[in-house]
Design a protein around this nucleic acid. Structure first.
Lengths: 231, 231
DNA sequence: TACGGTCTTATGGTATACCATGCTTTGAGA
DNA sequence: TCTCAAAGCATGGTATACCATAAGACCGTA
């Protein structure tokens, strides 16, 4: 391949901001920062080895993403998550992912089936991993395939952003192994329904998957912070 | 009310960033900047009378919102909108707004009816205004009531953000007066269905409203930029 | 005249120093 | 021990200097 030359020309203009953004997002999602924890600029600069400008811009971006909140006269903190918010997020995912799966049954191309099957197998393969991040990534890839095949890139962006906000919950639900087996069976149902082009069943399977995850998550979140956030 | 005292204590910690952010967002949404137009930092600093830092952070935020795109090695431009993207946005709105209206039929409080009626009347009142922004705002308020009553604040955030990205289209569709009357009748249907707690009809009315708007928008966008954006 | 290489310039990107403000904490005095 | 003031700290905000790069102008040569 002459990709080498092309790569050189189209060389990744990955800016420092992008790297820092990615790193911080990952750090928050991975739970490296606790929710509510303050994100003090200058220490972050030291840790990351970049200037304040970069950190500040990154924080702005993550604020817009909902991963970071700004406390007036105090600065940025890692966004906290109430059960009410989490429930709303699961509700939106229910709509978007259900719709994507249904659309996918109609518009899927001829080589989509094998790809989806491979993705499902990848999920199953990571099931026994000790590293929960791998399973999370495999699951993400599975859904990404569905959204992209349905041509719903914007909805996928929204879902990904929402997933970032409930990443801690997702990690917790994954840690619950008993749920995983049911999660796996749900995903198999989704896979089968899509390949047999059964829109209604596909949507139902997705909704079952998410409802199940939400139910598991609720237990954790209620135990975590039982107090109700006022309006 | 002792609001005065409270106001003083809780005095708006509105930072410069917030102001600039708001101003620029409004400017883009109002069409003051053309899509694809470059947002050169230093001139913006001069125009707004602020430093580059503020402008840059604002641009990061708007980038995350999807209002601004970054062209590698060139800098930020006002986001462009292809018909495919617009269609996706209308599709997501279809799901979220339909769902909100349906939920609203169930959970609405006793004083919600009058409020919704007032909002509907406000829309009708602005119908003859020359200023399209007023009608847009009244329409927004109408839907906001529905989302908040349904307790779907996150979905409302998403819809608002999406609306920002298709603001030009919304302005154009509003300029088409013939659509407005039908839009008004659609909103009246939504209003009536919600108040009579008829979920299915409410959802259908919302979907009719959006589908209609999308159809009108399509004409404008196809005329605007017929070329297809490559993947 | 046309082509190609170099130089300038404008812009994005980064780093750093500085000031004002508002918490928070700590310490001194009552 | 309690209270209040002052100092420290973190942030918001600003200005500026520096580098890299991309685009365009300019000039020299064929």
């Amino acid at each position: 391949m002459s990709v080498t030359q092309l790569k050189k020309i189209t060389k990744a203009p990955q800016t420092l901001r992008d790297i820092v953004q990615h790193r911080m997002r990952e750090a928050i999602i991975a739970g490296h920062f606790a929710p509510g924890e303050r994100l003090v600029e200058r220490p972050l600069c030291d840790q990351l080895g970049v200037s304040r400008t970069v950190v500040r811009e990154t924080i702005r971006y993550l604020e817009a993403e909902g991963l970071v909140e700004i406390v007036p006269n105090q600065g940025p903190i890692v966004a906290t998550l109430s059960w009410d918010q989490a429930k709303q997020i699961y509700d939106v995912r229910l709509l978007l992912e259900g719709s994507a799966a249904a659309a996918c049954t109609v518009v899927q191309g001829r080589n989509f089936g094998p790809k989806l099957t491979r993705a499902l197998n990848a999920v199953e393969a990571t099931m026994d991993d000790t590293e929960w991040a791998d399973l999370l990534q495999a699951t993400t890839k599975f859904y990404e395939l569905i959204f992209l095949e349905a041509g719903q890139t914007i909805a996928w962006d929204i879902v990904q952003r929402l997933n970032g906000r409930i990443s801690r919950l997702r990690a917790l639900t994954i840690a619950a192994r008993d749920r995983e087996t049911s999660g796996m069976s749900h995903m198999r149902s989704i896979h089968d329904a899509i390949l047999s082009r059964d829109a209604a069943t596909a949507r139902a399977a997705v909704e079952a998957h998410i409802t199940d995850a939400a139910k598991t998550a609720r237990g954790f979140l209620n135990a975590d912070q039982p107090e109700v956030k006022d309006a």
